[in-house]
Amino acid sequence: MQLERAFLAMILMALVTYIPRVLPIVIFRKEIKSKYIKSFLQYVPFAVLSSLTFPDIFSSTGNLTSAICGTLVALWLSYREKSLVVVAISAIVTVYLTGLFL
């Protein structure tokens, strides 16, 4: 691997990450009137985050059983409305402890 190539690839990655972020904010400044598009955009974060999480969370730890335990703990604590940090740390600890017994 050449360093210059890696550096150029990194610049390209940064560009194609920034372009989708910046275009809508700079170009489409008119308010959207359609209630369907508005509803769609409001639902998008839940759609994206749930699609990112499931089912990939079950292969996130290298062990299905520990991943399921971590997921259950995360679901339970989220349902009890604990903070992001508490949920994340509890899931990590659960996976780690479960891993010790497997």
Partner: peptide, 28 residues
């Protein structure tokens, strides 16, 4: 064991973001 346990962190955070609103909104 420790480095693989951390793989779940980001997903757990996503769950913590989507579950509380889902509790209150059937469409979500």
């Amino acid at each position: 064991s420790l480095s693989s346990a951390m793989g779940i962190a980001l997903y757990a955070m996503f769950i913590a973001i989507i579950i509380p609103p889902a509790k209150k909104s059937r469409p979500v």
